[in-house]
Design a protein around this nucleic acid. Structure first.
Lengths: 344, 344
DNA sequence: TTGTATGCGTTATCAT
DNA sequence: ATGATAACGCATACAA
């Protein structure tokens, strides 16, 4: 059952013996309206509890002031936080954002882009789904000249503005930290092989090893599909190597959580048997025992930059060159990687 | 910079020397259209990469097939999961959902309802913000005959369909569990005093105490505003009582996490010194050491019921009586409340 | 089977 | 300062 009685501008107009255009102008506070008329309109609007119809407004102006945000999932704290930070920045610029999750599925990503297009969003911000390997849907978006900014999970196959962190450097520093804390045999629990940022982090991992004269061995690199079960299996497989690692770099906190969980069940001690360093710095990191060392990404800054780059495209008449913003990270050192201070 | 060249039905029509209505019908697969015309239209639409304008569509049909979802925050796993489960159920019924967060702020809640109204959502699903004490904005919604369903954080001051769990019983069982595991002096770390579900849980806590012949003492009840700092302070204050509790019921996992964090820093052992039982069963619960005993709410079921109740109102001509669905919960017993099996 | 006319609620361009 | 009219893109009642 729905209201059949939405108050419209026309209702106010006839009630006041005015034309719709006058009411419209009064409502929007245009200067040419007589104060008395304006007052009358505003008051009646209030009394009738008039709600402007955003659909009609948008259609008439051919303008929605809305941007679409496509995220892999809101269950990761990182993405939920990015949503907040993007929404904040967008709102300040007078835009609202409509969010959709892909649940890591390529098909859903395609569908969501379709939806956003139909919803007439003026621009799109996204981070790629785990399973996205083909970019035709993105190209379509671009062919329609919809401004696009990609953050975090990007692809070099897409020519769009991006906001990322220096994954290679971050992984390098994280690995360096493990080495300097005495780890000799390092393993890496990476994400799906086709995810670019996973490879960048792997690259940083490798460079750190080589920089410190350790040999990089592919057999110490395992790939997780981000699910808990798979991650636990990969982690245990790694520890079942003839000479298991004494330090592991995991690509995300979720991977680290599952790994630590698996290790706990098997009686593998952290950091005594194996140290762990991870990525994302989710709030849960500090609650674990041992607390988890993790790379922090500047979420506020990323959100602000993402929106800034999008606005640049949105508000310029002429096409704008794509831009890549690389932000730096901070390693939050905690118990999982430091044998020294087990304070508990 | 934006596309000035959105392909419309009219474009297809003139290109094919047809009328707009014919194209419209062909696009929607109406039976009365000649197969050949349909083919031609469909093909050209594809070639021109035609995107239907959802705004125009909605305006023309005075129907959006959209429901609004207002959540306190997406940072709580419970709400993020509810979003997924609601979206799933809504999609199956052909509705899409637009989400907004209040960030626990009353003012934002009011504003978000305003937005949803302007966006012409056909119905609203919500869980109240922490700070919401006044319900005029909800009443306005109802005066406009917008179907409304409230879940989890509800209020008896709002006459709307709801989907909740039996908080009193859940708290009773949780408290019972603590008592049966040997706790003698129980404390409760509740949410803000005006949150109804917090009080219901407190009621269950109290009833359990009395049922087991323990005395309920208000001095063992502390209120957290859900922030980490405040929660830590309240938790430590509780343990600073002359005779601190040996068992605590916390109202949410977030409260429990912060409490455990505070206790860890102070060297207060869980469950040896004090056992903890909580609400929400976030995934993090199993990752903690000790793992956290928590009340699980049937999120899938809740989402399905919420949507079902809303659809009932949406798809009935006549007004539908409000309904309350009370679902039952399950206590997930883990290490934080059981002295027996510290497996690690 | 297809076309014409009208409407959805609002804004915008001309007039007056 | 206000009104009439057209337009936004699509759907639909009515004609043909």
């Amino acid at each position: 059952m729905n209201k059949n009685t939405a108050v419209t501008i026309k209702d106010i107009a006839t009630a006041l013996n005015l034309s719709a255009s006058t009411v419209s102008r009064a409502l929007r506070g245009m200067p040419e309206i007589h104060p008395e008329t304006r007052e009358a309109v505003l008051q009646l609007a209030q009394e009738m509890d008039y709600q402007p119809n955003q659909l009609a407004k948008n259609l008439a102006k051919s303008r929605t002031k809305t941007i679409g945000l496509i995220l892999p999932t809101l269950s990761y704290h990182f993405f939920a936080s990015m949503l907040n930070s993007i929404e904040e920045a967008a709102m300040q610029a007078g835009y609202s954002v409509v969010v959709c999750q892909t649940n890591e599925s390529y098909l859903r990503e395609v569908a969501q882009i379709q939806n956003l297009l139909n919803s007439q969003v003026e621009g799109v911000i996204m981070s790629l789904a785990r399973d996205t390997n083909d970019f035709e849907h993105i190209y379509r978006l671009q062919r329609k000249n919809i401004p696009l900014v990609i953050f975090d999970r990007y692809s070099t196959a897409i020519d769009a503005s991006r906001v990322i962190v220096d994954n290679r450097e971050a992984a390098f520093k994280a690995t360096q930290h493990l080495i300097e804390n005495g780890c000799q045999r390092l393993g890496c629990l990476a994400g799906p092989p086709h995810l670019l940022i996973s490879n960048e982090r792997l690259q940083g991992f490798r460079e750190a090893l080589e920089h410190y004269g350790l040999t990089y061995n592919e057999r110490y690199v395992f790939h997780s599909d981000f699910t808990q079960e798979n991650t636990m299996m990969q982690a245990l497989n790694m520890m079942a190597l003839p000479t298991p690692p004494d330090g592991i770099l995991t690509m995300t906190d979720r991977i680290a959580f599952a790994t630590m969980y698996a290790f706990k069940q098997k009686g593998i001690r952290i950091p005594e048997d194996v140290a762990i360093v991870s990525f994302n710095n989710e709030p849960t990191c500090i609650y674990l025992s041992p607390s988890l060392t993790s790379v922090n990404q500047p979420i506020q800054e990323m959100g602000a930059q993402v929106v800034r780059l999008l606005l640049k495209q949105l508000e310029n008449e002429a096409p704008v060159a794509t831009e890549t913003i690389v932000l730096s990270t901070q390693l939050m050192i905690r118990e999982s990687s430091t044998t020294i201070s087990k304070k508990v």
